[in-house]
Amino acid sequence: MDPEIDLRELYAASAGRLVAQLYGMTGDFAEAQDAVQEAFARAVAKPDGVRHATNPEAWLFKVASNIARSRHRRRALFNRLARSGRLDTADTTPALSPDHVALVAALQRLSRAVREAVVLHHIADLPVAEVATILGCSVESVKVRLHRGRRTLAELLRDAEMENSHV
């Protein structure tokens, strides 16, 4: 990687894609934005990591994914506390279209590996070879994950549509 990488250019070129990818994984747009911003903040604070990466965007994706996972674990702990009755919580999530909600819910039901491949390829519009590089697996493995993901999503979304038509 170029030791003189311009982080502003990298941000302009990849932040939107990274947010879309993390949104597909987390199901929470604000969380996706926060995780990507935190990943860039870490790159600014310690630029050697991203500068020495073979693929800076993949490095940022990995950092942002780890941030999102850590936050998810903390949120799960918080939710357990809230369910125990010791905390009062309020839902502040904005309303989304039913189709959008169904898609994100279906994505969350996929395994992490399949969900990441589907999000990177179909939402972030990355070629299969680049998805394989980002995920650290073979192209064939990505193709298998995509096949499984499309098949499972079709079933989940068909089931959700049938449930909604009977309501």
Rank of each mutant, 00 (worst) to 15 (best):
1 M>N: 07
1 M>Y: 07
4 E>H: 15
4 E>W: 10
7 L>E: 03
7 L>C: 06
8 R>L: 13
8 R>P: 01
9 E>P: 02
10 L>S: 08
11 Y>L: 14
15 A>Y: 11
16 G>M: 05
16 G>N: 12
19 V>T: 08
21 Q>S: 15
23 Y>Q: 08
23 Y>T: 11
26 T>F: 04
27 G>H: 04
30 A>Q: 13
31 E>K: 10
32 A>E: 00
34 D>G: 10
34 D>K: 10
34 D>R: 10
36 V>N: 03
40 F>Q: 01
40 F>T: 00
40 F>I: 01
41 A>F: 06
42 R>A: 07
44 V>Q: 01
46 K>F: 09
50 V>H: 06
52 H>P: 02
52 H>V: 08
53 A>T: 06
55 N>I: 11
55 N>C: 06
57 E>P: 09
59 W>T: 03
60 L>D: 04
65 S>I: 01
68 A>L: 03
70 S>K: 11
70 S>D: 14
70 S>C: 10
71 R>M: 03
71 R>N: 04
72 H>G: 14
76 A>H: 01
76 A>M: 04
76 A>W: 00
77 L>G: 06
78 F>K: 00
78 F>A: 05
79 N>R: 15
80 R>D: 00
82 A>W: 02
82 A>N: 04
84 S>T: 00
84 S>P: 00
90 A>Q: 12
90 A>M: 08
91 D>F: 02
92 T>I: 11
93 T>L: 03
93 T>A: 09
96 L>P: 04
96 L>I: 15
97 S>L: 11
99 D>K: 08
100 H>M: 12
102 A>S: 09
102 A>F: 01
105 A>D: 08
107 L>M: 07
108 Q>P: 00
113 A>P: 05
113 A>K: 13
115 R>K: 10
115 R>C: 08
116 E>N: 09
117 A>L: 05
118 V>H: 01
118 V>C: 07
121 H>S: 13
123 I>S: 11
124 A>L: 08
126 L>E: 12
131 V>H: 05
133 T>R: 15
133 T>M: 10
134 I>G: 02
135 L>P: 03
135 L>S: 04
135 L>C: 05
137 C>E: 04
137 C>A: 06
138 S>G: 13
138 S>R: 09
139 V>M: 10
143 K>L: 10
144 V>R: 12
145 R>Q: 12
145 R>Y: 14
151 R>I: 06
151 R>D: 14
151 R>G: 02
151 R>N: 08
154 A>C: 04
155 E>N: 02
156 L>A: 01
156 L>C: 03
158 R>D: 12
159 D>G: 02
160 A>E: 12
160 A>G: 05
163 E>D: 15
163 E>T: 13
166 H>I: 15
167 V>I: 14
